[in-house]
Design a protein around this nucleic acid. Structure first.
Lengths: 239, 239
DNA sequence: GAACTATTCAAACAAGTCGTAGAATAGCAG
DNA sequence: CTGCTATTCTACGACTTGTTTGAATAGTTC
């Protein structure tokens, strides 16, 4: 088979097909690969995952990824060069955030594809434990509207403050057992957390079921809910 | 990179918050990073782009990416390890294809994010030339249904055969000037090609306009159309 | 089976990336 | 200004990736 793709029409215009555009095509793929390279390191992916919930300082990100501050800083600059994060100064510290919503969509697409790998499936089983029943965003909305379910946000209070599903109750996972009385016994509890690969909601559901409650989890987490355009609140609007 | 596989995790409860799940989280992000690494090379991205249109042999892929067959083979194995491509044997040759539709979605997300980078914008300008008017898939469908437009597929005939927008006419770009008579003069021509970073439809539109035709391009290409669930045909069903 | 083709494997080296440790910088509190 | 904190920069070794070359393999054709 011959290489039929490239060399055709030779006009004098800037966007002709030929040698010049072959070089441009290579440069374009090199530019795309810059973003690919940014996604090629587990620490960077973990920091992006943390930033998907809320903006964070370098020190906090380093702690969450279990790496030194200097290394976290270097990785964050790599992410910034690739256009994945942005930062602002807040007094003495620099606070990083995801550059835009497309970055989270990219992260979701990456996880969807990677989720099929044997390595990922095995790690996910170890992280999430026995699978628990999960409902879609649409199903959750329907149950809440019908008065059949109550939504519980199991993330740390700080992340709840930064943004949560409208109408959700904040009960951070470590406090869940002590605060069971706050949950109505006649409704199903739908728990959610950071996303599909966060262990908090499966653990919370397991705990609720051990206490005889009907419970399930939302398939994904708060970032997906927000990106789907569904109703959200934050600490300034609603408690 | 350190290999902390499987040594930790001393609890007997599968999904407990603590050391074991910390290790699982790291492994999970390492698994995601495997896919990131696969996206970290311009040659691999170019081959994925080619495969988005149609399955291809190693030799053809090597030619399109302008690299040796041995190198292309090595890159394809890297892509296969990451679950991005699959292959089958066809007589004497091995034919590779994208592993599934999620891979194309990932590629699209990557390009969307990377498209904002200065490097990518510059390369895109060089590749695509002066921007031409572009219409969305919905707008295109509406114009065709109203009888206002005709759709032209500018890709090589082989790719048209492998799948095209229902109702589109196949006029490969090199033949366009010679085959102008086949296009009705009273309708607008909507051209499409491989995708948003393919130079064929901007070039085709420019050529049509030089010949006094009303023309514009579809913002993206055939793969996006197919993934959106819009009507498609292939060589066996329609000519 | 022999000759042929397409693809993959193996070895080797250059170039790039990751992580560590310690120094340097920028803003804040006094 | 001085000391303090958070972050970034620099330099270096260990490791990984990209590429080339030539040989090995699997399947086809005669």
């Amino acid at each position: 088979m011959e290489n039929a793709a490239s060399v055709q029409c030779a006009t004098d215009r800037p966007n002709e097909t030929g040698v010049g555009s072959q070089a441009a095509k290579i440069e374009l793929h090199e530019a795309f690969a810059l973003v690919g390279k940014a996604l090629a390191n587990p620490h960077r992916l973990e920091m992006l995952d943390v930033l998907a919930q809320e903006e964070r300082s370098v020190e906090v990100l380093a702690g969450r990824a279990a790496i030194s501050v200097a290394l976290a800083s270097a990785h964050l600059q790599a992410l910034r060069r690739a256009g994945l994060v942005a930062s602002r100064r807040d007094g003495n510290r620099i606070v990083y955030r995801l550059a835009n919503d497309d970055v989270y969509r990219l992260l979701t697409a990456l996880r969807t594809v990677a989720g099929g790998l044997a390595e990922a499936e095995q790690a996910a089983r170890r992280l999430l434990g026995t699978p628990v029943e999960a409902v879609s965003r649409e199903e959750l909305l329907a149950r809440v509207r019908a008065g059949d379910a109550v939504i519980v946000d199991l993330r740390p209070a700080e992340e709840y403050e930064a943004g949560h599903i409208a109408g959700a109750l904040s009960i951070p996972l470590p406090e869940l057992e002590a605060r069971l009385a706050e949950l109505p016994t006649d409704l199903e509890v739908v728990a959610y957390c950071r996303g599909p690969y966060c262990a908090m909601s499966p653990e919370g559901v397991a705990l609720l079921e051990r206490h005889g409650r009907r419970a399930c989890r939302l398939v994904d987490g708060f970032p997906e809910w927000r990106l789907a355009g569904l109703p959200v609140r934050d600490g300034r609007e609603d408690g």
